[in-house]
Design a protein around this nucleic acid. Structure first.
Lengths: 174, 174
DNA sequence: CTCCTATGGTTGCATTATTAAACCAGATTG
DNA sequence: CAATCTGGTTTAATAATGCAACCATAGGAG
């Protein structure tokens, strides 16, 4: 069985095994690092995207993404472990599991929208993008994501600042 | 018994075997896949985060992130290639390069905010998150990112739909 | 029931990526 | 001009990925 974050990376001069984790970000203080620890690999977010588009079954994901089946199996296990997908018996009475996004999984929607809009704005070949995200009611493209202050002012990157939380005597990393 | 398997997928002009490479997503039609092709690995987004926080130099990134120097060098090259960072002579007159975010790099700000807010909302140990993103003027936490329709209605995941773009008559590639 | 096929994986193994550490060149300091 | 700092590259190891083979279960045909 795979042990994702532990490995012997070598022996010291006395032959002692040196045990080191693959860099894991799960106990970082930075929330961005923490989120990347859950979904920061090549495939996880794409699986979540597919799940939010309504795909549910192993074969659907595999066909849609074209990734190796062992990798897909490992990723699905990870996403289930992290509470992003939940396994459920097949809704059509079939014999196999379905993988359904949890609220935590649906909570990634803004992340996916942000990535989409970044591509739309900065990609070098935007004409190759095949889809548009539209408002279901009116069928018109959505606006860009907006970040606002509590009083409603629209905020850009330069209008924000990262402040240490005051709850404990932690050293600040950023 | 299984035959020894060689993952040779072709031959280059000199007859050397072309071997399996990592999947590239750069010509996907999905803009999320396209963005992940640029910044979808373990470290790139964290480097961008650091750059947006004002870090500029190789040593600053390395100390902050704690990643191997060869990996950092490779990632910086990649981010420069993708137009996310731009190398510039050191602003303090020193001899080395600085890596400065371009507009495309600053355009990742909403992605970083979305990831941060996802952690804040769903992380199992949110008390370990050390910082808050605040409005610079008032010093108060920002609101959650908002997705709106063109007429201003606030949109959730279920209020949107992905629509195929109307493509030109000509290139209807399979 | 047996054979055949489809689905949903696991296993084996070659290749690639990541890592820590050693090394190195140019710039800065003593 | 030696020592040290900065900014990397090289080396050698482990971990992750990709692909095809293999397997287990379910359903249908004969």
């Amino acid at each position: 069985m795979m042990q994702p974050h532990k490995a012997v990376i070598g022996r010291d001069p006395r032959g002692e095994p040196i045990l080191v984790k693959r860099k894991s970000l799960e106990d970082a203080e930075c929330p961005i690092a923490r989120s990347l620890d859950a979904i920061g690999d090549w495939w996880s977010l794409l699986i979540v995207r597919d799940a939010l588009l309504g795909r549910r079954r192993f074969g659907e994901f595999q066909k849609s993404l074209g990734l190796a089946k062992n990798i897909l199996a490992a990723r699905l296990r990870l996403l289930v472990d992290k509470g992003i997908l939940k396994p459920a018996p097949a809704s059509d009475g079939g014999a196999y599991l379905e993988y359904v996004p949890t609220p935590k999984g649906r909570g990634l929607f803004p992340v996916l929208v942000a990535l989409r809009q970044w591509s739309e704005a900065f990609d070098e070949a935007p004409e190759e993008i095949a889809t548009v995200l539209v408002d279901r009611d009116k069928g018109r493209p959505v606006r860009k994501l907006e970040l606002r202050a509590q009083d409603g002012r629209l905020l850009g990157f330069a209008d924000t600042v990262l402040r240490p939380k005051q709850t404990s005597v932690r050293s600040r990393r950023a």
